[in-house]
Design a protein around this nucleic acid. Structure first.
Lengths: 248, 248
DNA sequence: GTGCCGGAGTTGGCTGTACAACTTGGTCCA
DNA sequence: TGGACCAAGTTGTACAGCCAACTCCGGCAC
């Protein structure tokens, strides 16, 4: 049923997810009681609850005291890795990702950059500017600021490297948490030239700060997408909320 | 420490949240071990772990096997209610919300609308168009589709009712889960007239489908914000992902 | 100095139990 | 007919315990 070596509750969650996705329980239907599921999978009720918490967070099932869980439908959530990496995301939807490094250089970070990366003002950072494509069509401009430690590694990558995230992970850099802010921003002259749109065109902007498990920022990125190329979806519920709306 | 009658783990979570927000542990610092926290609060380790799971989902702390938890910083997450309701959100940031119903009418839903609300094609729905303001300045156009059952209630609300969500809740309508999709969309003639911007202006669009605990859709809303008025923030991690990026 | 190794400390995973809070459906009574 | 009430079923909360997997640091050998 599940992958050997993975936690039992993840195997159960994966099996339930597949059962829901293939419609075995039907959208709007009820899931079996936790006790029945526990017996069926040969695990304790606690383990089943752990599995169901995963599906709950993905928005696949509801849960309410006193009544059986309701199936909401197949979830549309991606793994953390697919969200972080344009390359992985593109591949997961069957597109051919591309990347071209336009500029990469060390510099003294401005106060805002250093604050985002948790560095002393004036610390050295690496500024990377890349043009990202899907099937060779430009869709996004990526401006990433790395702390010196990481940037030095990126500096060694080939100019036409498709992915930066993957080789960084191979080098032992861990990405575990990210904050994304989504709004829109007009294209500046550089954006316009690289994306092939008129200056001032409103672009969908995603700013992202990524940290490693010790809480140290490893990346501060600003991605600008051409209109109509991407949309972002978030699920939340009374049980778990990770979404925030603020004044722009 | 906490509110009487609330679950113990929520009280512990609230106390830890406050401790982190007020800087008692310092950003980047370490949390005490689960066992120590359990002893301090006089609860079992399981309860402490439940509390920490809440903070983990909010992006306030990391967690990794083998080492103590790291404090990431004060979270910026809002309650589900504040996300759902423009009115509640505005009040929570100290702004004065306003709403004016421009149009409300029953109609035969088109196939897309009925699909979103889980209704038979051609079922009766209520289309509501509202202009939302902050401190009397127009910032957003809200187009909401309600199923007949809910729409009939909304039809009775005053035209200048600030909130629709709150009176619906008072009438026993429960909102528990929502899927948000964020992208941009050009202002049509109506948007432009109401918001006072040129037609074709790129607006930040949030589409939202909300369901009750039994999985029945209660609302399908499309909100269009003037540029620069709002931004959306999402936190996710390897542990919990509720965010999705898709082709627009 | 450098690198290997081991042990203490810590979180992840799983089990089992017990009770509380809530939903639901049916029964009974006015 | 309608409403109050009860009982069964189900999830939420909490406790206690055990072991595995992992991190981290210090000691030790080279």
């Amino acid at each position: 049923m599940g992958v050997q070596g993975e936690a039992r509750y993840r195997q159960v969650a994966a099996d339930l997810r597949e059962a829901i996705t293939t419609g075995r329980y039907g959208s709007g239907g009820r899931l079996p009681a936790e006790g029945d599921l526990a017996q069926h999978y040969g695990v304790s009720r606690g383990t089943v609850r752990q599995a169901l918490a995963v599906l709950r967070a993905d928005g696949m099932v509801t849960s309410r005291r006193g009544t059986r869980r309701v199936v909401l439908g197949a979830a549309r959530t991606q793994s953390f890795a697919e969200l972080l990496s344009f390359t992985r995301w593109a591949r997961s939807i069957g597109e051919e990702p591309g990347g071209r490094t336009v500029a990469i250089e060390p510099a003294a970070g401005d106060p805002g950059e250093c604050a985002q990366l948790g560095l002393e003002p004036g610390s050295t950072v690496f500024r990377v500017l890349r043009l990202r494509t899907l099937s060779r069509v430009p869709v996004m401009i990526e401006r990433t600021i790395y702390p010196e430690r990481i940037g030095a590694l990126v500096h060694g990558f080939p100019i036409d490297a498709v992915s930066h995230t993957e080789p960084l992970e191979d080098l032992g850099v861990l990405f575990t948490d990210a904050d994304h802010t989504i709004d829109q921003w007009p294209a500046d002259a550089e954006d316009a030239r690289l994306l092939g749109c008129p200056p001032g065109t409103s672009l969908l902007r995603e700013r992202r700060r990524t940290t490693d498990p010790t809480g140290v920022p490893v990346e501060w990125s600003q991605d600008r997408y051409l209109p109509g190329t991407v949309a972002f979806t978030v699920h939340n519920s009374v049980a778990t909320t990770a979404l925030y709306r603020r004044r722009g």
